[in-house]
Design a protein around this nucleic acid. Structure first.
Lengths: 110, 110
DNA sequence: ACTATTTATCGTTTATCGACGATAATCAAT
DNA sequence: ATTGATTATCGTCGATAAACGATAAATAGT
C-alpha cells in the first residue's frame, strides 16, 4: 500500500534550502532526547504534577530499580530539565523551569 | 557547587503519585525520540519550510550520505512525522501534519 | 565512631543507534 | 529488455543506551 493521504505538490517553489540550518537544532535534539524515553517522560510528569520536588518516592513510583531511576534523573538533569537539591541525606528534585520552557518554546516554534 | 537556583518545597503536599501514569508517555517518548537527533530536526525543518515536499535534494542539503539520510527519513516516517509519496523514480516527502500536530500538542500539554 | 538511610556511581551485559559503502529495488524512457 | 536515475535496504563497525546488582558516598542521629 503506497501511502497517499496528503497531497504533495511538486518539488519546485523553493529557493533557499541550505539556509535552514541552525544550531538550535542541536539544542532541540538534546532536549528531545532527554524525554525520548517513557521513564523520563513519566518522571518529568510526576515532578510537574507535584509542582514542587520529590525524592526517593520517584523510585517507588517507577517500576525500575533505584539505580536506573537515578540514571534517568541524571539525564534529565544534564539536559537542564530537572534540578536536584540536597536536603539532608535525601535529594529533592524539581523541574528546571528554564530548561523546560526552552523545550516547549523550541517545539512550539517548529 | 550544589545547584541551588529554584526554591524546593518539602516533599509533602502530595497524595496521588502513582496515578500519573499514562500511555501517552510512550507516544510522546516515541515522537520525541524521532526528533532527538540534529539531522532529523534539520530534515523536519526543511520540510516544514518548503511547506510541500522535497526529494533527494534533502540529501544534498545534508552533510550525510544518501543512505544515512534515507535512514533518518525512515525513522521520521515510522514515527508518523513525515510521509513519503512515490513520484516516478523519486520519492516526495512532506510533513505528516497529523503526527506533527500530535507532537506539538503533547509537548504543549506537558 | 557507628548505624541506618538515602542517593550516586561503578561495572557488566545486552540491545540499539548512527554512519558508511555496497547492493538491491523501483520506475521512466528509450 | 536495457539503461540511467533515484531511493531503500543490507551488512558491518564503533559508540552509546538501558537495565541491573553491588558498592561507594553523604548525612542525621544515636
Amino acid at each position: 500500500m503506497k501511502t497517499r493521504r496528503q497531497k504533495c505538490l511538486p518539488c519546485s517553489a523553493g529557493a533557499g534550502l541550505e539556509v535552514v540550518s541552525s544550531d538550535h537544532d542541536d539544542v532541540l535534539a538534546k532536549l528531545a532526547w532527554a524525554i525520548a524515553h517513557p521513564a523520563r517522560v513519566r518522571l518529568l510528569k510526576i515532578l510537574l504534577a507535584k509542582t514542587s520536588c520529590v525524592c526517593g518516592e520517584l523510585v517507588d513510583a517507577m517500576p525500575l530499580s533505584q539505580s536506573t531511576v537515578s540514571q534517568h534523573l541524571k539525564i534529565l538533569k544534564e539536559a537542564g530539565l530537572v534540578q536536584g537539591e540536597i536536603d539532608g541525606p535525601k535529594v529533592c528534585y524539581c523541574v528546571n523551569k528554564q530548561g523546560f520552557d526552552r523545550l516547549k518554546e523550541l517545539v512550539r516554534d517548529l
